[in-house]
Computed example of a mutant assay.
Amino acid sequence: MEHEPSIFEQRDEAAEALSLERARADYAAGRYHDHATVSAWLRTWGTPNRKSFREWLKSSG
């Protein structure tokens, strides 16, 4: 019996290409945050101080 891939194993190359295009456009437009900033936000997960990224940015800056 041959294994039938699940929906999570099937690649959607058009969706991946569009996602990469959008990511590159965001980066080129300066819509990104450095690793240290995102890492600091992730350390709030599982704590009472967890907020959405946007809220956290406003309150931490």
Rank of each mutant, 00 (worst) to 15 (best):
E21C: 11
H35V: 05
T44L: 04
P48H: 01
D12L: 02
D12R: 04
E21Y: 13
A25S: 08
S6E: 08
P5Y: 03
W41A: 01
L57C: 12
S52P: 08
T37D: 01
I7N: 09
E9A: 06
E9L: 07
R43M: 11
F53S: 03
A36W: 03
W45A: 10
A29Y: 05
H33D: 12
A23I: 13
H33Y: 14
W56E: 02
E55Y: 08
L42C: 03
Y27F: 15
R11Q: 06
K58C: 02
N49W: 07
I7P: 01
T44N: 01
G61H: 02
E13Y: 07
S59C: 07
P48D: 02
W56I: 06
A17H: 10
L20I: 15
R43L: 05
G61L: 03
P5E: 04
P48Y: 00
D34Y: 09
R11C: 06
T47A: 08
R24P: 02
W56R: 03
P5T: 00
T47G: 01
R50A: 06
T37S: 06
T47K: 09
A17T: 12
E13G: 05
H3Q: 13
A23W: 10
E9M: 10
N49L: 14
S39T: 11
A15E: 14
A40E: 09
G30K: 06
S59K: 07
Y27K: 15
N49Q: 14
R24S: 08
F8I: 05
D12P: 02
L18I: 12
P5G: 00
S59P: 01
E4I: 15
R54D: 03
E16Q: 15
S60Y: 07
E9K: 08
G46I: 05
Q10C: 07
S19W: 04
H33T: 08
S39H: 11
L42Y: 00
F53G: 04
F8M: 07
S52M: 15
G61I: 03
R22Q: 12
H33E: 12
V38T: 11
I7E: 08
A28F: 10
R50V: 06
S60N: 11
S59Y: 04
V38C: 10
F8D: 04
L57T: 08
R31L: 12
A29K: 05
G30L: 12
K58V: 07
G61T: 01
I7Q: 10
R54P: 00
W56K: 01
H3T: 09
H35K: 09
S52T: 15
F53P: 00
Q10W: 05
L20Q: 15
G46T: 00
L20R: 15
F8L: 11
W41L: 02
L18G: 07
E21I: 13
E13S: 11
S52F: 14
W45R: 13
A28D: 12
H3E: 09
A14N: 08
